[in-house]
């Protein structure tokens, strides 16, 4: 797609999101906040799946670890400090990514999928079966973290609109960061690894280190989304680390179109909104209870007929010459 055209479309979309609180009701404000946090999650996974060729089925581990980090660092009756707890949550995720990545990245293909899943399940059971994070009941975060600068509150995170703004800003920041990263020599090397890892090695690239760096960055960015989700809902429980959550974010990436950052955002919106629509009893009556069936059919249809995902819809068909083959 023409770079300038896509930039204009993107700026328009961000402007619409920035103006949305003026029109949206509380329900929709909360819904879009949730979606934007998920979009960060999906973009971080796209760095692995779409750009480095690493299909992970354990991405929820980072989401959950960040949420638990916030919960565990929050004093019971006082506000935690966002400036310390958000970096702490990202650092915890980066550490987990560094340690597990050093092991999982020794595998590839189907084994990589299985081992990432296995590590995420281990993290799940650590929180589910031990008293560390309140067991299967989880932990409540009674007071929202503060975001102060020089004694003044920058954003009141208890206020829906202001929290919405924070999530929108972070989503935009993550998007711009990743776009920059992908255009850097590092990003080009990741693309090379995805296209032909063996050739990258024979050209002199230590591909393992590149993949590990990507894995750690993806983990830390996923941490932002887990942190925001925990902040929004005010509690964490082991379900946020479950493989369902890993599967949902992977579906967002596939639905939106792998290897296109804006596709991950589109995928997050599409999946959550579809779920809202299909599960709407007012529209679909009894059938709404079986929304997952309809969702499954839709996902299959997208996979069959839109191999480049929803993001591929807006793009003009590429010249035949540009197809990788």
């Amino acid at each position: 797609m023409n770079r300038r055209r896509s930039d204009i479309a993107l700026a328009a979309a961000l402007l619409a999101l920035a103006l949305f609180p003026l029109a949206g009701s509380t329900f929709y404000l909360q819904l879009v906040t949730k979606i934007m946090a998920m979009a960060i999650f999906a973009m971080s996974l796209d760095l692995l799946v779409g750009y480095t060729g690493l299909v992970s089925l354990g991405h929820a581990a980072f989401f959950g670890i960040a949420g638990y980090t916030l919960a565990l660092l929050s004093p019971q009756y006082e506000a935690a400090n966002l400036w310390t707890t958000l970096p702490a949550a990202m650092a915890a995720c980066a550490m987990f990514a560094l340690v597990t990545g050093a092991l999982v990245l020794r595998t590839s293909g189907i084994y990589f999928i299985m081992v990432t899943l296995a590590f995420a399940q281990m993290a799940y059971f650590v929180f589910h079966d031990t008293a560390l994070g309140g067991g299967s009941d989880g932990i409540y975060i009674y007071v929202k973290p503060e975001m102060k600068l020089a004694g003044r509150t920058l954003l009141d995170l208890g206020d829906l609109g202001q929290f919405y703004d924070l999530v929108l800003i972070l989503m935009t920041a993550v998007y711009l960061f990743l776009r920059r990263l992908l255009g850097s020599p590092f990003g080009r090397a990741l693309a090379g690894i995805r296209a032909n890892e063996q050739r990258m090695r024979s050209l002199g690239f230590p591909t393992f280190r590149y993949k590990l760096a990507a894995y750690v960055i993806a983990g830390a960015l996923a941490g932002i989304s887990g942190y925001l989700a925990a902040l929004q809902f005010g509690f964490v429980n082991p379900e946020i680390l479950s493989w369902h959550n890993s599967g949902i974010v992977l579906m967002m990436v596939i639905l939106g179109g792998m290897g296109t950052l804006h596709g991950a955002i589109i995928g997050a919106f599409a999946l959550v909104l579809l779920q809202e629509v299909l599960a709407n009893q007012a529209w679909f009556g009894e059938a709404a209870k079986h929304w997952q069936l309809a969702m499954g059919v839709l996902i299959v249809l997208v996979a069959l007929f839109l191999p480049r995902g929803l993001a591929g819809l807006g793009a003009r068909p590429r010249k035949a010459s540009a197809d990788g083959r």
């Binding site: 920059r180 990263l181 850097s184 020599p185 080009r188 090397a189 690239f205």
Partner: peptide, 24 residues
């Protein structure tokens, strides 16, 4: 780009993640 990547393998700044690849 095939050759640029090959040349990049010799570059010490390969891990600079926020500069555009074309700048080099």
């Amino acid at each position: 780009e095939n050759c640029r990547l090959a040349a990049q393998s010799r570059a010490p700044h390969a891990l600079r993640i926020l500069s555009r690849a074309e700048r080099f």
